[in-house]
């Protein structure tokens, strides 16, 4: 009798969660460990704007009750940062000085919010929105009816912005190339969409470039964004929503090919036989276009996680989802996105 395989999943987002559940379905005996920097078990990040609708209890955000992980024999290792992956020894190293051995590894650590270089010095004055904790901090930092300044405005940011408007806050959008990311939007269409947002009540700066964030705590507003033009926009919270960049630093020593993300074949396997990748972190080989492509959006990500899990369990399925890129905001401000709409 062979020992059960140990599947280690780095990341506990949609891809990782979908993979873990699928792995358990494929093999009742394997060992499954999810390693994540997060403190909470899996919840859908795309539900986070809900904190402005009173959803402050993270327990209600969870996809499954915590006890389910124990029932399914999925070991959840939270607050654990992976600093290194050794593809030869088949171990991952955790920041707290522990190595975890795996038979098969799935990397789906996702991406982090991209920040324009000229704003890096202002990072301490800006808010993130990548986790429940971050979302709650934004909620607490915003006074009733207060103003949120959104730089960029990828689909996560647009979703949040619409929720804020709905719940009585003011939103200032400083649009840029990443607005509506990951949708690719033609200039004419972009103008129309921005207009729709403006009609919804958003203040929009469409052709301005932010150069820094200022602490104006002593004044009526606590923050201001300085624009290249010299204008200062005041608000209570400043957030950057400029798309995601893959978090691949810890994979540099793993012996797998990396470009901007981890490169995988259509089966989502890396150049190392025992390592797969899925979600926002990977670029998948597109046989027709002969390039490695990112596929963002929670639906794609979930599909990737589940597919990788089946392939880790012995299948050879191909990721050949051709995603229709379609975005619309109607006159009532309702959002329809092939990537985002729930």
């Amino acid at each position: 009798m062979t020992a059960p395989l140990h599947h280690v999943i780095i990341g506990s987002g949609s891809a990782g969660y979908g993979a873990a559940m699928t792995l358990r379905g494929e093999d009742a005996d394997c060992m499954i460990t999810m390693v994540t920097i997060d403190a909470l078990p899996f919840y859908n990040r795309y539900d986070l704007p809900g904190v402005f609708r009173g959803h402050h209890d993270w327990r209600k955000l969870l996809a499954v009750p915590p006890a389910r992980y124990d029932e399914l024999g999925i070991k959840l290792r939270r607050s654990s940062r992976v600093v290194d992956v050794d593809g030869e020894r088949q171990t991952i190293s955790l920041a707290h000085q522990e190595d975890v051995a795996y038979d098969r590894l799935l990397v789906c650590a996702g991406g982090r919010s991209y920040l324009a270089e000229n704003l890096i010095d202002s990072v301490g004055l800006m808010h993130g929105f990548g986790s429940f904790e971050a979302a709650m901090r934004v909620y607490r930092a915003l006074p009733k009816g207060g103003t949120a300044i959104i730089i960029g405005g990828d689909m996560i940011g647009i979703d949040l912005a619409l929720t804020l408007l709905d719940t009585g806050y003011r939103v200032v959008l400083i649009a840029n190339q990443q607005t509506f990311w990951p949708h690719v939007v033609e200039p004419v269409e972009r103008k129309r969409l921005l207009k729709a947002l403006e009609n919804k009540g958003m203040t929009i700066f469409a052709d301005e470039r932010p150069v820094g964030v200022l602490d104006t705590r002593n004044k009526k507003f606590s923050r201001a964004v300085a624009l290249e033009s010299g204008t200062e926009i005041t608000g209570d919270v400043v957030m950057s929503f400029c798309g995601l960049s893959s978090s691949v630093e810890f994979m540099l020593g793993a012996g797998v090919d990396i470009e901007r993300g981890i490169l995988v074949n259509p089966e989502l396997r890396t150049t190392n036989e025992t390592i797969w990748a899925a979600g926002d972190i990977c670029q998948i080989w597109h046989d027709k276009e002969k390039i490695y492509k990112f596929y963002h959006g929670w639906k794609n990500v979930r599909v990737m996680g589940e597919l990788a899990a089946r392939n880790m369990s012995g299948s050879h399925e191909i990721f050949d989802v051709e995603v229709e890129d379609r975005l619309d905001i109607d006159d009532d401000g309702n959002l329809r996105s092939t990537f985002w709409t729930r």
């Binding site: 992980y69 959840l76 955790l94 051995a101």
Partner: peptide, 27 residues
């Protein structure tokens, strides 16, 4: 719990491997 141990621990001997999913970790 501590997230900056001074020496390596064997696999599974860090408390993060034992915290139940419903408990809240503060590393």
């Amino acid at each position: 719990f501590e997230d900056s141990l001074i020496a390596r621990v064997p696999e599974g001997r860090h408390i993060s491997a034992h915290i139940k999913p419903a408990q809240v970790p503060y590393a």
